[in-house]
Design a binder for these strands. Structure first.
Length: 440
DNA sequence: ATCACGGTTTGCA
DNA sequence: CTAACGTGCAAACCGTGAT
């Protein structure tokens, strides 16, 4: 079970970095296929919360032209024609599978940044560069064997380059799912970068790509050769960093410990339009409870609360209303009850009857750390021992007994507004009662 | 003219 | 059967009032 890990050799001069980006192919769809092999080879999409739009597509679905984020009701007909199987998202399953993948990857380097639910950076600097392709193949094999999930590995000297290498590993069969830019001859690499669209670059999206193209930067190579100073004027410091990273200068370091959030959001669209104050109040209570759990998990305190509600911007015949307000806390807190109370007060201020509300949410702001207590004299965090003991007890019970075993009564029990999830798979790995019995 | 601020918009994944 | 378009975060941007 223990595979030999390379011993990293450190030289005194700053070595060329080897940074790997490992990412699961079509992650949510692949998770579903692990537990339901009938889905293999078929066109499958996973829908966002509320069964709103496509957030993961199998290759078969991509081939049918369904874009990322396509609204479900708009391609339902196409789905029927081609037998696309649409599933609601099952975050309990994906989170659990993600944890398994991440802990396997952790065996391959002491320096890991978990970048998203399905992506991880590993710093492989000092590992013999020519062997890294084999090392990457090793990761792939092990993850496939132990979790059933297919991954691709991209390696480069910066995070931006490793992202691009990963893209090549996925799209270009000659790389066989592992692509190492660092072992390619410079000319060959530039030739490859010259074939990649500028929009493939990490941080260049829907808006920036056309702007860059208008300036004549069509390929990754074009941007790599751009003048970072000049583009910084025209765009921003982020663009300058991107260009330098394309040239192999590390500007974006691995963040092994994720920095504490400066703001924490919890919001949801409703399954059905909501008009009455009480339903809104229930949902706000629930969202604030979740936000407060996140806040305490990073051991912080919030100095302000933002609460907002809005109708659907898509329904032309319904009158539109959107409002929100920020409420400063007298002193930073992480007590659910106090935060909920303030949020509900805010809701009362912005609520107007007779609108069809489609979404509500809360945001915690002016977040300060509870550890360093980097707070000025006038706003000391004052947590009564009673409050923090209660919150700690709540969190620990919910950790042990499952989410929301204990909650405020005002969160509501019926939740008629709760989101639509019409075809969710069982939580195979986290809920016994949902696992189907297999007899014979 | 410049700054700090808060609220809003933009952009990305 | 209806009607139906996500969420979380940071950074940039922008108007305003104070200095």
């Amino acid at each position: 079970m223990q595979t030999p890990l390379y011993i990293r050799s450190h030289s005194n001069s700053a070595p060329k970095r080897s940074i790997a980006l490992i990412d699961v192919n079509n992650f949510y769809v692949s998770c579903e296929r692990v537990f339901n092999p009938k889905l293999v080879g078929k066109p499958v999409v996973v829908l966002s919360n509320n069964d709103g739009c496509a957030v993961a597509r199998s290759n078969e679905v991509k081939a049918l032209g369904v874009g990322m984020g396509a609204p479900w009701f708009k391609f339902k007909d196409l789905a029927r024609q081609h037998g696309i199987i649409a599933l609601s998202s099952n975050y309990a399953l994906y989170a659990d599978m993600s944890n398994r993948v991440m802990s396997i990857l952790r065996q391959y380097s002491p320096d890991q940044e978990v970048y998203s639910i399905d992506e991880s950076f590993l710093d492989l600097t000092g590992f013999p560069s020519r062997d890294l392709i084999q090392y990457g193949q090793d990761m792939r094999q092990r993850i496939l064997k132990w979790t059933g999930l297919p991954v691709c590995v991209g390696i480069g000297s910066t995070k931006t380059l490793s992202k691009l290498a990963n893209h090549c590993a996925k799209k270009r069969p000659q790389f066989n799912s592992v692509c190492n830019f660092n072992t390619m001859p410079p000319r060959e690499l530039d030739d490859l970068l010259g074939q990649l669209d500028v929009g493939e670059i990490w941080g260049v999206g829907r808006k920036l790509a056309p702007k860059l193209q208008a300036l004549g930067f069509n390929t990754v190579l074009d941007l790599k050769r751009a003048d970072p100073e000049r583009l910084r004027q025209q765009f921003s410091v982020v663009m300058e960093k991107t260009i330098r990273e394309l040239n192999g200068t590390v500007c974006i370091e691995l963040e092994e410990i994720s920095p504490a959030k400066q703001q924490i959001i919890s919001s949801r669209s409703f399954g059905y339009p909501v008009c009455d104050y009480n339903s809104l109040a229930e949902s706000i209570t629930l969202y604030m409870s979740r936000a407060a759990v996140k806040l305490r998990k990073q051991q912080s305190f919030a100095g302000s609360v933002y609460v907002y509600i809005r109708t659907s911007p898509f329904k032309a015949d319904d009158p539109f209303y959107s409002n929100g307000m920020t409420i400063p806390m007298p002193s930073p807190t992480n007590d659910t009850r106090q935060l909920v109370k303030v949020a509900l007060w805010g809701l009362k201020q912005i609520y107007k009857p007779n609108y069809n509300y489609a979404k509500a949410g809360v945001m915690l702001g002016e977040i300060v750390s509870g550890q360093g207590m980097q707070i000025d004299l006038f706003s000391q965090v004052q947590t009564s021992p009673k409050s923090s003991a209660l919150m700690a007890a709540m969190d620990s019970i919910n950790r042990k007994m499952g989410k929301e075993s204990i909650k405020l009564a005002s969160e509501g029990f019926k939740r008629p507004w709760k989101m639509k999830q019409e075809s969710k798979s069982p939580s195979y790995t986290t809920k016994w009662e949902e696992v189907p019995l297999i007899l014979n």
